[in-house]
Design a binder for these strands. Structure first.
Lengths: 190, 190
DNA sequence: AAAATGACTAAAAAACTAAAACGGTCAATT
DNA sequence: AATTGACCGTTTTAGTTTTTTAGTCATTTT
C-alpha cells in the first residue's frame, strides 16, 4: 500500500497495453488493475495518450539499454554495429508490447499507435546515427551521409530480420552479420 | 460497335479499378462504361476477381516491358540492373492503378488487393532474379544466394525510392545509382 | 443458333438507431 | 492535500433494417 502509486499505475498500464493494445485498454481497467481510483491516474498523467507516451518512453529506454549491453569495446566497430542493431530488431519482434502495437497498427490502423511506432523508429534511427557518428569522427568510416547510412542500415536489418522470414526460413544473427559484412560494410569501411 | 467486346470490358475495368479501386468498382459500372450488358462480362470472365487478375496481369507485363525498354546491351551489367529496378519502382509509385491499390490496401485492407500486390511483388522479384541469374552464369557476379541478393536489392530500392521520400527530399535516379554502387554492388561485383 | 442482355435473387454491405462503454471531471471523502 | 468513484457528454458497439452488389438465366437480338 505504501508503494508509489505512480509506479503502480505505470505497471498496470504497461501490462494492459501489452495484452490488449492501446484502444482496447480502458482507463477504468488500468485503475482497477493498479488498485487505484480512476481520478488518481489523472493526477499523474494528463490523459490516456500521455500515459501511453510514458510507457513507450520506458520501452525505448529498455531497447537502448539492451543495445548498449551487447556492445563490447574490444570488438571491431562493424561487429558492434551489428550486435546493437540485431539486438534492437530482435527486441522489436519479440517484445510483447511491440508485437501488440505492430499488430494493432496493421489490423485497426489506430492513429495514436501509428504515431508512436513512427516515434520509436525515429529513436532507433537517431541511436544508430549517433553510434555511426562516433566512429566516423574517429576516422574509422568516411563521412558519407550519416542520415542515409543509418537509414539504409536500419532498412536492411528490418528486411533481413522481419521481412525475410515472412516467406523464408529465418536468418540467424551470424548469417545476417555475414550478409551485412559482404554486402554493406564493404561499402562503408574505408 | 464492331470493336471486340472483350477489349472494351478490359479497358472499362482498367479505368474503373484505377479510379476507384477494387472494392468500389461495381460490375454494373464496368458494364455501363463498356457499353455492354452485365451478362456479357461473365461470358469472358468467371467473376470479378478474374477480371481483376486480367487487369493486373496486363499491368505486370507493362512493367516488364518498361524495364526491358530501359536496358541497353552496351552498358555494364550493374548499370542495367539499376536502370531496370529504378524504372520498376518509379512505375510503382507513379502508375495510377498501382497508387490506388497501395492506398486501398493501407486504408481498407481489402484481401483481394493485398493478394494481388503480393503477387506483383513476387513477379518483380522473379524478374530481378532472372536478370541476376543471367549475369551470374556469365561469370560477371559470383553465385551468391540469388534469392537473397534479389530480395535485398529490391528492398533497398523500395527503401530509397519510396520510403526515403516520406521524410526527406526524394533522391534522383543518379543519386540512387551512386548509393547502390557505393554500398551494395561493391559487395556483389567480384 | 449463337451472342448479348438486363430483370432477378441470394448474399453482402451500408445506414440507422438504441444501448453500452468510454475518457475525463470534480464535489465529496479520506 | 491526496484520493476517489458517481457523473457527464461523447464515442463505440451491437442489433436491425435497408440498400447495394455479384452473379444467374430466361428472354431478346443478331
Amino acid at each position: 500500500m505504501a508503494t508509489d502509486r505512480r509506479k503502480l499505475i505505470i505497471e498496470a498500464a504497461a501490462k494492459s497495453f501489452s495484452l490488449f493494445g492501446f484502444k482496447a485498454t480502458t482507463m477504468d481497467q488500468v485503475a482497477k488493475l493498479a488498485n487505484v481510483g480512476k481520478g488518481t491516474i489523472y493526477t499523474f498523467f494528463k490523459n490516456k495518450e500521455e500515459l501511453f507516451a510514458e510507457i513507450v518512453s520506458s520501452l525505448v529506454n529498455e531497447m537502448k539499454n539492451e543495445a548498449e549491453a551487447v556492445i563490447q569495446p574490444g570488438l571491431p566497430f562493424t561487429e558492434n554495429v551489428h550486435r546493437a542493431l540485431f539486438r534492437l530488431l530482435e527486441f522489436r519482434s519479440h517484445h510483447q508490447l511491440m508485437i501488440k502495437l505492430i499488430q494493432e497498427e496493421k489490423e485497426m490502423g489506430t492513429i495514436a499507435v501509428s504515431e508512436m511506432l513512427q516515434h520509436i523508429e525515429n529513436e532507433i534511427l537517431t541511436y544508430i546515427k549517433q553510434k555511426i557518428e562516433g566512429a566516423s569522427s574517429k576516422g574509422i568510416i568516411p563521412k558519407t551521409d550519416l542520415e542515409l547510412t543509418s537509414f539504409l542500415l536500419f532498412k536492411m536489418y528490418i528486411a533481413l530480420v522481419s521481412d525475410w522470414e515472412k516467406s523464408h526460413e529465418p536468418l540467424s544473427s551470424e548469417q545476417i552479420a555475414e550478409i551485412i559484412k559482404v554486402f554493406l560494410l564493404k561499402g562503408i569501411k574505408n
